[in-house]
Every structure is written in structure tokens, then in C-alpha cells.
Design a protein around this nucleic acid. Structure first.
Lengths: 161, 161
DNA sequence: AAAATCTGGTTGCGTAATGCAACCAAGCGT
DNA sequence: ACGCTTGGTTGCATTACGCAACCAGATTTT
């Protein structure tokens, strides 16, 4: 019955995953962040089948993460450009890369290092900090219903400590 | 042929996605961050089929993101506990939630708000900042090969601006 | 002008993964 | 002894994925 959808889950993480679409989509966004815009370049960079790429790009365009732009003047006809919504996924990508740098490759074995183009210095590690600057771990957090909480969400949060 | 694997892609994002496994796995980690530890609680919370949950938990345990702990003294027999590696995914989850708060639900319609349990204040937004504190967008970044870069990665980075 | 090439796809087909429901087995409570 | 809860496993139908082949419009080459 195909993959189950998270769209009905009243949870930000699920909604984000649903909007992005799937693993491929996130890799496509990653490529776009590094400047790739054309269909064939995505296909080559990721080694993804063209039919898969088609459906993913369509999905991403439908969700406003990419914009399909006709640049027909020169032989190249279309570009898939990240929208503001798409660019806003940058922290997600940075967080994933930093996690694997630390926990998969290990420090000193990072395949890629991200620099600030202006200063040439490394981008500081992304961290979840409290308002007073202390680092936070999952145990330090508490989830409370927000203004858009459904009854279901409220019930769930009431049950969990 | 099933889904293609990103394991051979010399890229932190791909490696992280591969280690996590799939969309469900990330939702499982999310639940764990909010305190869920038992098989049946994951199953109920996510509405995921039990065979799917089994394979995902096995995968997550194999990759060191969860630890399966026998707590057999009382009727409940196992707990799936996040390891340090698993807890380190917190920034990824926070980044996803913040993205959907802003771009899917919209401000003022967040279903969940995360507080610092100690101070009771909202957790400040996660941002990609330069070392001098300025916010960075994708265009401000430059990727350079790190110590663990493969020849392939070096070539790719050389080609892109 | 005709042929080859490039870009951006679509179509068919076999294989793998997903989802549901039914079944199972060890502990525990009574 | 009996059933209930927990934590699964098994079978089967449906769906998605991945590959390769094909295709059509526009540009470049000969």
C-alpha cells in the first residue's frame, strides 16, 4: 500500500519529513545548496534514476521548496532553484553533516569542511542552547502544546512526563 | 532492487541518512527524545506496523543509535534507550521542527513548543552563524575537502564554484 | 539541409520494500 | 489453570524503486 504518510501526524518533524518527501529529496536539496540547478547535473551528481528524479523534483516544486524556472534562451532550458523555503532547510543539512562528521567518520576524518566564504573560517558547530547559552540535551527539554496543537497532541503531551 | 543506498557517497549528509535508515527511523528517534522507550509505545505512538518497527529498531541498534536493554525484573522486558550517538541527533530534529513551524504551520500555529525545563523559557531558534555571529545562507558557504575526502569528493568540489 | 548531440524527460518491466492482519510464545497476575 | 500483556514473526497483497530503453524538441556540427 505504499509508504504511510506522516501528513496527519500533528508533529513538526513529521510534517517536515512529509514536505521534503524522502531521502532522495533531501540529497537533492543538499546538491542545490552547493549550487546544482539543472536536471542532468542532479542526475549525475546523485546517480539517481531519471524517473525518480522527476517525481522528486515535481514533489519539491509542489511543496514550494524548489521553483522550476525556464531559462530557455540558451540551450539549457530549465533550472530548479531553491526558494527561501528550500534554503531554510540549511540548518537541517548542516546538522546532519555535523552528526556524521562526529559519529560516522570521526573527528579528523571529515570528507568536507564548510567555510564562511567571507572570512574563510570554519562554520561553528550548530548547537541547541538554552537562552543563557548552556547546551541542552533531550532530558533538559519539555514539550508543551502550542497554539496550533490538536486535541490529540494535547492528550499525548499530558501522558508523557 | 529496493532502495538505493547512500553508503558509498562520500558525503556527510548521505552517511547520516544511511545510518539513521529511513523516515520512520527518524520518527522513532523523535519519540525516544520525548521519553518513549518500549516497543509497544513506539508502535502506538507512530501507528507503525510491528514488523516495520522491528526492522527499524534492529537497524538503529545495529548502528549504535539505540541500545536494547533487558529490564526483565518487572513485566516489561525490554527498553530501547537512546545512546549518546542517538541523542546527538537532537539538533537534526530541532532543525526539522523549527523549519515546519515556520514554513508549514506558520508562526502562531505551532503544534508543540519546546521549553528549557530548568528555566521554563523557550529554546532559542537554531541558526547557522558565522564565527562573528552573522547568520549564514547557502550562498555564504564554501565547501572544501577535509582530511577524509576521497579523490571523488575532491574532483567534485573542484568542479563546483 | 541533414545528421548528430544535448537536455529533460516518459515508458515498461522485474525486484524489493511496505502495510495489514493473523498468529505465536514467554512471563505475569489472579 | 487461565487469560492478559509484551514483543515480536509470518504470509500475502500492494506499492514504490531502479534500470534500461526510448523519445521529442532545440541546438550544434558537417
Amino acid at each position: 500500500m505504499g509508504r504511510k504518510r506522516f501528513a496527519d501526524i500533528n508533529c513538526g518533524v513529521g510534517q517536515a519529513l512529509e514536505a521534503v518527501g524522502d531521502w532522495w529529496s533531501l540529497m537533492i536539496v543538499r546538491d542545490a545548496v552547493f549550487g546544482i540547478r539543472r536536471f542532468s547535473d542532479f542526475a549525475e551528481s546523485l546517480g539517481v534514476a531519471k524517473n525518480i528524479l522527476t517525481t522528486r523534483l515535481d514533489h519539491l516544486v509542489a511543496h514550494g521548496i524548489f521553483e522550476k524556472v525556464d531559462v530557455g534562451s540558451t540551450g539549457t532550458r530549465f533550472e530548479y532553484q531553491l526558494t527561501d523555503k528550500g534554503e531554510a532547510l540549511l540548518p537541517v543539512l548542516i546538522a546532519l553533516r555535523e552528526w556524521s562528521d562526529e559519529w560516522v567518520f570521526g573527528r579528523g576524518h571529515e570528507p568536507i569542511i564548510i567555510h564562511d566564504q567571507r572570512t574563510g573560517r570554519r562554520v561553528p558547530k550548530l548547537r541547541v542552547l538554552a537562552s543563557d547559552g548552556r547546551p541542552l540535551s533531550p532530558r533538559d527539554l519539555r514539550a508543551v502544546p502550542g497554539p496550533g496543537a490538536s486535541e490529540d497532541t494535547i492528550q499525548r503531551l499530558r501522558r508523557s512526563p
